[in-house]
Design a protein around this nucleic acid. Structure first.
Lengths: 144, 144
DNA sequence: TGTAAAGAGGACAATTTTGTCCGAATTAAA
DNA sequence: TTTAATTCGGACAAAATTGTCCTCTTTACA
């Protein structure tokens, strides 16, 4: 479904949000430990998230990653997925046709529309705040 | 969503079914032309479909690929996806957690369940016959 | 029985994804 | 002003996926 990079990116964003709610900066070492991902690869993904204005980085000693508190409730899963995997997963054809619409549909088109719509809804209606709060309350987890 | 191999495998199966309904065998050359896929790679995928008892192959002169007419309505998309990509796409966790369930859910678990259910329904309720008939009626297409 | 047409399968190559390492730049604090 | 803790970015490496090619075997038919 999502690439590994995207999975790590989503989990990292949630973990950073969780800490930013308490004014704590975190670095790749702590992040990769808490989301169970390879550290150097995670650092690369964090760079991409920074370039896409999803997280802020503070360089130098006492630096790290954070998300502006006011942004935590407006950043959606769709923003993160878009930044890393693009929108093909929730906008593209299930069989990879470049043109696939009601006029010239692939064989799965009608039924796949429902899957895509459900996924689109999930990504566009879920913000980082609600995800981070669930973690905080111990109602969901970032690793096994 | 699906791998390229799986996309080609689905399209190839539909095209073979379509032709088997009219007692015509087809080979990798014709298949790859009609589904717009690389021929040699498609041939490899056909081998996998044969090994998984989804299509039959007839070797030698006048050989080719076909699907038993009686099987065309009982082979589901899920069978093809399973044979090539496995079932993780419609059974696994959206964030890649090995264990992800109501007891220890990932942050997306609740909402992602709906996506997975919709996808599972699509794959398990769609048979090759209906897909092939749509193509035959000109109501859907295997390539642009 | 010879030959041409076809699938099977192994080896290989190209590309993409995943992952690592290291030097340079930046910054806080001693 | 030096030092240590950081992020950034490029180069590199490993693994997975995608794709190609060639030989062997099987088979129908002349």
């Amino acid at each position: 479904m999502f690439s590994k990079a995207c999975e790590y990116g989503i989990k990292a964003s949630i973990f950073i949000a969780l800490n930013s709610l308490e004014h704590r900066r975190v670095g790749p070492k702590e992040i990769s430990k808490e989301i169970n991902s390879p550290e150097a690869f995670t650092a690369k993904i964090l760079q991409a998230l920074v370039r896409n204005n999803i997280v802020n980085s503070i360089k130098g000693a006492h630096g790290g990653f954070e998300i502006d508190k006011k942004d935590i409730k407006t950043i959606m899963l769709a923003d993160i997925v878009n930044a890393i995997d693009g929108d093909n997963i929730y906008k593209g054809c299930g069989l990879g046709l470049q043109q696939c619409n009601a006029d010239k549909p692939c064989p799965m088109h009608e039924k796949f529309k429902l899957v895509r719509a459900e996924l689109k809804n999930l990504l566009e209606s879920t913000d980082l705040e609600s995800l981070a709060l669930d973690i905080k309350l111990g109602e969901s987890f970032l690793k096994n």
